[in-house]
């Protein structure tokens, strides 16, 4: 390419070269993009928090094609970035290949388990968090009927549903849980209109608390619940602020903590299987000024008792994905 360099003599190529100064960390977002108001954005927030607190710099990239997963991983690995964090289970097969080619680079994948020696696999105990909000739902419900609206019908979302039902039934054995999945394709993650329809149908059947584990579809669920005057439960990020006084609480999955921890560990990232759960702050429920009025002390006491029980092991929440079945459904 000497010809190109000659033509564009003014180009400041060296200043902008994509090599890391001192093994900076890097993060690759999934196809949803970093401002998806949910999963990827939480990852982005974790990276930003790390940059602010440590004064360090990191690089990130958004993809627009499946073929770019492997390409981006290789590009960052060649550039000397360490560790490299990827968000989402869709990266699994690309990461398996690339991690084997760069044994000296540390990688982290969120929401998936990859077996290579230099990969940290971060998974969350979403069933525990769903159990906690299930307890809250059963306590807050006056009709004894609560709802669950999932996004795409995959084992991960059934894991949410199963934990939720366990929490509800443990609190009120006679309660009814109405469950709906939005769809079977990825578009089910971003269909607020259908989310709203399902919410109306569940309210029609008597539900007065609806838990949405459906990505962007949940926006429609929370909106409809607020319009119809029933309670709702948000997911992943703290969504209490969306409809103060209507969102009972949110099941928080601290993807940002996973990214923050990986970035903080730097090149010494401890690899292997990492579980973020109730015990280590990776999973929690949200309590702030937006839901303080509806999240009564009685509900809080019950949820905190359940949380303590999960942490000390006296409450065992069944994980749907451990055997692809749910004892209470």
């Amino acid at each position: 390419m000497s010809f190109m360099k000659a033509v564009l003599g003014t180009v400041s190529a060296i200043a902008l070269s994509a090599t890391a100064a001192l093994a900076d960390p890097a993060i690759i977002y999934d196809l949803g993009g970093k401002f998806d108001k949910s999963f990827n954005e939480a990852a982005f927030n974790g990276a930003e928090r790390w940059a602010k607190e440590t004064g360090g710099t990191y690089r990130d990239i958004e993809l627009s094609s499946e073929a770019q997963r492997e390409q981006a991983l290789r590009r960052f690995a060649e550039g000397g970035f360490n560790p490299i964090v990827v968000t989402g289970f869709a990266f699994a097969s690309a990461l398996e290949t690339v991690a084997a080619d760069y044994p000296d680079t540390k990688f982290a994948i969120i929401d998936m388990v990859v077996g290579n020696d230099n990969v940290r696999s971060v998974v969350f105990t979403e069933h525990e968090g769903s159990y906690l909000v299930g307890v809250a739902a059963a306590k807050a419900s006056k009709s004894g009927t609560v709802g669950f609206i999932g996004g795409m019908d995959i084992p991960l979302i059934r894991k949410f549903a199963c934990g939720y039902v366990q929490g509800v039934k443990a609190t009120n054995a006679g309660a009814t849980v109405i469950q709906n999945m939005t769809g079977t394709t990825p578009s089910a993650w971003n269909d607020p209109v259908k989310g709203a329809e399902l919410t109306k149908a569940q309210i029609g059947q008597g539900a007065d608390v609806v838990y949405a584990a459906a990505g962007g579809t949940g926006v429609g669920v929370l909106q409809t619940a607020a319009d119809e005057g029933v309670l709702s439960i948000g997911v992943d990020s703290n969504q209490n602020y969306l409809h103060p006084g209507s969102v009972l609480t949110s099941m928080i999955k601290r993807v940002d903590v996973a990214v923050f921890n990986a970035f903080s560990a730097g090149a010494d990232l401890e690899t292997g299987f990492h579980v973020l759960g109730t015990a280590n702050g990776g999973i929690d429920y949200a309590l702030d000024e937006n839901n303080a009025a509806i999240f009564t002390d009685e509900i809080k006491a019950a949820v905190d008792a359940a949380k303590a029980g999960i942490i000390d092991g006296s409450i065992q929440v069944h994980d749907y994905m451990s055997d692809n079945s749910c004892p209470v459904m």
Binding site: A18, S64, Q71, G79
Partner: peptide, 17 residues
């Protein structure tokens, strides 16, 4: 366009589009 994202971080995916 994808390489541009690596070399010039100020340019976003949407800019390339």
């Amino acid at each position: 366009g994808f390489e541009l994202l690596f070399e010039m971080p100020a340019i976003s995916r949407e800019m390339v589009l």
